[in-house]
Amino acid sequence: MNKLEGPFILVNPERCLGCHTCELACAAAHTTAGNIIGAVLAGEKLYRRNRVVQVDSVKLSTQCRQCEDAPCVRVCPTGALYRTETYTAVDQRLCIACRLCMMVCPFGAIHVATTEVAGREKAAAFKCDLCVDRPGGPACVEACPTKALSLKYPTEVIHQATQAAARQFLDALESQKQLASSQ
């Protein structure tokens, strides 16, 4: 499987309860301690990169879509937002908090807040980085109690869809024996 094509976090709204566990997991995973109690004891601020929204009666979490030709990366004047082969992320040390990335993100996935960067208080942009430095993968996916969140690779999704289509075709053939034998 080609893992070079960047993965993204997919949400299944039918499974999402709107419990906000993913938000907590996200905020905790990006602290030095890596957990909420440790962060609170250290006086560290907690910021989530994802957000649970409600659309009519359905709840689901939203986060960065990891655009390949990302507008935020293109607009960033200092190169703080960058794209690797598989994900986009922000280097908060370079961020000047001009909010241009917020203005151009079609998914509202970036916000600016005051935080401590390299020992100094400053305003900087926050966005989902797929927890690239976390051995267990994205914290939100791991924490979701109903497995509504999953890390998907586009090639994997396409592969599954093709498999499903092929199976459907075989099933149709099976149900219409005379059609198969007439070939």
Binding site: R51, C105, H111
Partner: peptide, 21 residues
Amino acid sequence: IEDLWALCPECRQQRAARQWI
């Protein structure tokens, strides 16, 4: 971003979520 230009980030999230559903 032309048709969602004036939307605030929260409403953009809402819009993206609705589109996905």
